[in-house]
Design a protein around this nucleic acid. Structure first.
Lengths: 96, 96
DNA sequence: TAAATTTGGTTTATATTGTAAACTTGTTTA
DNA sequence: TAAACAAGTTTACAATATAAACCAAATTTA
């Protein structure tokens, strides 16, 4: 009745990040930070976790002279995100 | 863009409990335990938290000779649950 | 009827998480 | 060249979730 929710996605910030990445080709650290309102530290940690799970990939480069970190969702990540959304719906609709 | 999610509801077990209670008049401990698959200890703790927030009320009585704990959602709880569902939708649909 | 088992929980301890604060490295600006 | 800023990372601490241990009363069984 209540499917287990992927703990990696059941986190406010990681979910927000995945939600953004699910809709765009790629997004960089600063963009994610602005959109989510997260602190750099928190964002950095959560990006690491998503990367470790192969839900996203991170590429580090430079924009001019400033470092730039670009994130992209992977197929695994897309799949996990969709699955999470489906699971969650069972929780939300159970009350109806 | 990404509203803050009520931390009390953004928890797998508490969400499941609230989801059940949102749909019925009342439910007792054992029923909640069966439906959610939670351990007694975990369920007990989470019920306490929901009670402390006045999201649910708990009534203790007896069914025959055995103790029985009955839970009911409060208007505050209903409201918080609805609000959570609405907030969450913004996360889930952002990727579209 | 005494011992073992089950029911219906609560308390406590521990492992996991989330998050903020402090730090680093390099860049721009006054 | 000193101060302020950008883009992150590391670290330390607080909050959470969860399992394990415990408890009391009722029921079953030997």
């Amino acid at each position: 009745m209540f499917p287990k929710l992927d703990p990696l996605l059941h986190s406010e910030l990681r979910l927000a990040v995945m939600s953004i990445l699910a809709g765009v080709d790629e997004a960089d650290f600063t963009y994610l930070k602005k959109q989510t309102g997260a602190t750099s530290g928190n964002l950095s940690v959560q990006i690491d976790k998503l990367t470790a799970a192969d839900y996203i990939t991170v590429e580090k480069g430079f924009k001019g002279k400033m470092p730039r970190t670009t994130c992209k969702i992977t197929p695994t990540g897309q799949e996990a995100f969709s699955h999470y959304v489906e699971s969650l719906k069972e929780y939300l609709s159970a009350g109806k």
